Simulated scan of single mutants.
Amino acid sequence: MGKLSKKFVTHFTTIPNAIAQNDELSWKARGIFLYLASMPSNWQFYEVEVAKHASDGRDALRAGLKELEEKGYLKRYRKRNDKGQVVDSEWILSDVPMFDKPMLNEPMLEKPTQVNRTLQNKYLTKKDNTKERYI
């Protein structure tokens, strides 16, 4: 059995536009986010039970959950006993991406080499008679 924790509290389900309109999330992931957000904090559940509430099935649920995890909207922790068996799990759902390695506010080097370096596009091609070559 798992437990869901949310990092936002409302009396009805609200979904930020940043999630609803995020083109990097599939419709499946957005729908799963909406369903999980509609549940109360500390909701006790089983993944199999969640899968029963949609026609897509367990594999589609798992794919959507993995997508939410990769984009930082969901973190899942599993608690195991001394035999290595999963005994409990916790899912943390957030309306802003959570990452283990936050972006740095300051550059890593004290004196960066160049601030606005010009990048070269190595994929530009130039036709030389019948051959293409990279510039």
Score class of each variant (00 low, 15 high):
79 K>A: 11
79 K>L: 03
54 A>S: 12
13 T>V: 13
86 V>N: 05
88 D>H: 04
62 R>H: 07
64 G>C: 12
12 F>H: 08
133 R>F: 10
135 I>M: 11
102 P>D: 03
106 E>W: 10
112 P>E: 02
8 F>N: 00
120 Q>E: 07
118 T>R: 15
66 K>L: 10
36 L>W: 02
10 T>I: 08
51 A>W: 09
44 Q>Y: 00
78 R>S: 04
77 Y>A: 03
28 K>W: 07
107 P>G: 05
61 L>D: 00
44 Q>D: 14
7 K>I: 09
81 N>E: 03
87 V>E: 00
48 V>R: 05
39 M>I: 04
112 P>F: 07
87 V>L: 01
89 S>A: 14
52 K>S: 06
48 V>P: 00
17 N>R: 15
10 T>G: 04
105 N>C: 06
46 Y>H: 12
52 K>M: 12
125 T>N: 07
54 A>N: 09
67 E>P: 06
112 P>G: 09
111 K>S: 08
108 M>D: 03
62 R>L: 14
45 F>Q: 00
124 L>S: 05
107 P>Q: 11
89 S>K: 01
16 P>M: 08
23 D>Y: 11
59 D>F: 10
25 L>I: 04
66 K>T: 05
5 S>D: 05
109 L>V: 08
101 K>W: 13
97 P>G: 12
54 A>R: 13
11 H>G: 11
32 I>L: 12
79 K>F: 08
30 R>L: 08
102 P>M: 10
116 N>M: 13
115 V>C: 10
101 K>L: 11
116 N>P: 01
11 H>W: 07
90 E>W: 09
16 P>F: 02
90 E>G: 03
87 V>N: 04
92 I>L: 15
7 K>P: 01
16 P>Q: 06
71 K>D: 02
129 N>K: 15
60 A>C: 07
55 S>I: 06
11 H>Y: 13
34 L>V: 11
134 Y>C: 02
79 K>S: 15
101 K>S: 06
17 N>V: 11
23 D>L: 10
119 L>W: 12
133 R>C: 12
7 K>Y: 03
84 G>L: 03
26 S>C: 09
107 P>R: 13
80 R>H: 10
106 E>D: 09
31 G>Q: 06
37 A>D: 02
72 G>V: 02
7 K>M: 13
70 E>R: 06
33 F>I: 03
57 G>F: 03
13 T>R: 08
134 Y>E: 08
70 E>H: 14
